[in-house]
């Protein structure tokens, strides 16, 4: 099992970096090219949600991402430290329900629609979103 960990400050500009890192590691792990867009979007959504939560509750604390190559799965876990008891919401919305800016649960609905396997663990100490996709058992060989 290979693991890459990344921590970053709760700044919107860093979300793109997190997306790029996750996509690069997914490719290296052997995730199919056709799934890489989904990885990029789902990781971006999870990180965006975490950044917004930290900016509201604990802007000085870092956000953590763990990326694992585990038994033929590429697994990403995004952990924040902002208190949360959010639950998953319906995946379709009426225009009148939508706030501007968007409610953070909308991002989770997108993740659920994108990732092959998703678990959301809200808690008073922060939210953890774990998602995974199928990958080649050996991944690509390291250069």
């Amino acid at each position: 099992m290979a693991t890459v960990e990344l921590t970053f400050s709760a700044l919107p500009a860093h979300v793109r970096t997190a997306r790029l890192v996750a996509t690069a590691i997914a490719r290296r792990t052997g995730v199919e090219e056709s799934l890489l867009d989904e990885v990029r979007l789902a990781v971006g959504e999870a990180c965006s949600r975490a950044v917004e939560a930290h900016r509201a509750h604990c802007p000085g604390e870092p956000i953590r991402i763990e990326l694992r190559d585990d038994s033929g799965r590429f697994e990403v876990t995004v952990s924040d430290q902002a208190p949360s008891d959010e639950q998953q919401h319906e995946q379709t919305y009426e225009l009148g329900m939508l706030a501007d800016p968007f409610m953070s649960s909308f991002g989770i609905a997108v993740i659920v629609g994108l990732a092959d396997d998703v678990e959301v663990f809200p808690s008073p100490k922060g939210m953890r979103i774990r998602m995974s996709w199928p990958a080649a058992h050996n991944g690509h060989p390291p250069i």
């Binding site: 979007l41 959504e45 939508l98 706030a99 501007d100 968007f102 909308f106």
Partner: peptide
């Protein structure tokens, strides 16, 4: 090249 839910929120806000 890329659109996430934040972008969707902006479009919905514009529509409203």
């Amino acid at each position: 090249d890329f659109l996430d839910s934040t972008g969707l929120g902006v479009l919905v806000g514009g529509l409203k």
